[in-house]
C-alpha cells in the first residue's frame, strides 16, 4: 500500500520538478528570478523555495505579485472545466451504454455518427454560433461574463456556484440562476469534445465487456440486459477508461482557456492572453506552472482513484 502510494507520488514529484525546471529556465533567460541568472542547482533550489513560499514573482505591468492574482482567476477556469466534465459524464455514459449494448445496431450507428459529427465541429465556431443565436438573437442567455455583478454577496471560494449556494437568503435564488445562466453556453460548448470521447470509450469498453463469458452466464441466469449492464457491465467497463479520461482533462483545460476570450470569462486564459499582449513574462511563467501542475495532479489523482475503486488494479496495492 505505502509502496504504491510512494511510487505514484514519486511520479508526481518528478514530473512537477521537470515542469518547474522548464519554468525556471524560461525565467532565467528573461531575468525574472532575481539578479543571479546562472543556471545551477542552487539557483534552481532557490526558485523552488520561493514558489513554495508563495512568491511567484511580480507582474512587470501592474507591479503587483502574481500569486494572488492567479489564485483569483483560477477558480473560474476550473469551475468551467469541472462542469464540462460533469456534463460529459452525465450525457456520455448513458449514450455510450446504449451504443455499447449492441442489440440495436441502428441505435449504435446513430449515436456513433452523431458523435463523429460533434467531434469534428470546430469548437470556436460552435461557441460563436451559440452566442449569436441563443444570446444575441433570442436573448435567452447573457452574452458574456460570469455572473450578475449587480448582486452583492461574498465570494470566499472563488467558485461562483459554491459562493452563490452559500449566499445570503435574499439574493441566493437570483445568484444561483444568474451563475447558471452565465455558465450554460460555455459549459455546453466545452462539454462537446469530452462527451464524444466518453461516448466513444464507453462504447468500446462496454462492447468488450458485454461479450465476456460472465455476461453470457448472467444472461442464462435470466437477468435482464439492463440489470446486467448495471451489475456487471458498467462495473467492468468504466474503471479501466477513467485514466484515459483523466488524460482528456489537459486538453479540455486548454480549450477552456481559449474559449474564455470568446465568452469574456474572467479566468486564467483571458488573464494569460492579456499577459502575452503586455509581455508580462512573470505572469506567463506563473500561469504555465499552475496549469501544468493542475493537469499533472489530476492525471495522477485519477490513476489513484481508479486503483482504489477497481479491484483488478487494486491488485497492485496488495502485491507490495
Amino acid at each position: 500500500m505505502t509502496r504504491y502510494i510512494m511510487r505514484r507520488l514519486n511520479l508526481l514529484i518528478i514530473t512537477l520538478l521537470i515542469i518547474v525546471f522548464i519554468a525556471f529556465a524560461f525565467g532565467q533567460t528573461q531575468h525574472l528570478n532575481g539578479v543571479d541568472t546562472s543556471m545551477n542547482l542552487r539557483t534552481y533550489w532557490d526558485f523552488i523555495a520561493r514558489l513554495l513560499s508563495g512568491d511567484w514573482g511580480t507582474s512587470s505591468v501592474s507591479g503587483k505579485p502574481i500569486y494572488p492574482e492567479m489564485i483569483a482567476v483560477l477558480p473560474a477556469t476550473l469551475e468551467l472545466c469541472f462542469a464540462a466534465f460533469l456534463v460529459s459524464f452525465i450525457v456520455g455514459i448513458p449514450l455510450g451504454s446504449i451504443a455499447g449494448m449492441h442489440k440495436k445496431q441502428w441505435m449504435r450507428n446513430t449515436i456513433m455518427s452523431i458523435t463523429l459529427v460533434a467531434h469534428s465541429i470546430p469548437i470556436f465556431w460552435l461557441a460563436l454560433v451559440l452566442v449569436m443565436s441563443l444570446s444575441l438573437q433570442m436573448g435567452w442567455f447573457p452574452v458574456s461574463g460570469r455572473m450578475d455583478l449587480l448582486l452583492d454577496y461574498p465570494h470566499p471560494t472563488g467558485f461562483a456556484l459554491i459562493d452563490a449556494w452559500f449566499a445570503p437568503a435574499d439574493v441566493r435564488d437570483a445568484a444561483i440562476s444568474s451563475v447558471i445562466s452565465h455558465m450554460a453556453i460555455p459549459t455546453l460548448v466545452l462539454a462537446v469534445v469530452p462527451t464524444t470521447e466518453v461516448i466513444r470509450q464507453v462504447t468500446i469498453s462496454l462492447g468488450n465487456v458485454m461479450q465476456q463469458n460472465y455476461v453470457k452466464t448472467a444472461l442464462t441466469k435470466g437477468f435482464s440486459r439492463w440489470k446486467i449492464l448495471i451489475d456487471h457491465g458498467l462495473r467492468n467497463a468504466i474503471p479501466p477508461i477513467l485514466p484515459n479520461l483523466g488524460w482528456q482533462f489537459g486538453s479540455v483545460l486548454t480549450t477552456t482557456m481559449i474559449l474564455e476570450v470568446v465568452f469574456d470569462w474572467p479566468g486564467v486564459g483571458r488573464w494569460l492572453i492579456n499577459a502575452i499582449y503586455q509581455q508580462d513574462y512573470a505572469a506567463i511563467q506563473g500561469g504555465m506552472l499552475a496549469i501544468s501542475g493542475i493537469v499533472i495532479f489530476t492525471t495522477v489523482a485519477t490513476d489513484i482513484f481508479t486503483t482504489l475503486i477497481y479491484p483488478l488494479h487494486r491488485k497492485e496495492i496488495y502485491e507490495h
Binding site: 465476456q212 463469458n213 460472465y214 453470457k216 452466464t217 448472467a218 444472461l219 442464462t220 441466469k221 435470466g222 437477468f223 451489475d231 456487471h232 462495473r235 467492468n236 474503471p239 477497481y310 479491484p311 483488478l312
Partner: peptide, 19 residues
C-alpha cells in the same frame, strides 16, 4: 432461464465477474 434451466460452463474462470 431463471427458474427452469441452468448451465455449468466449460471455462469457469472467465464465467465469473473479475471485479
Amino acid at each position: 432461464m431463471r427458474e427452469d434451466i441452468a448451465m455449468i460452463f466449460q471455462d469457469p474462470a472467465t464465467c465469473l465477474d473479475p471485479s
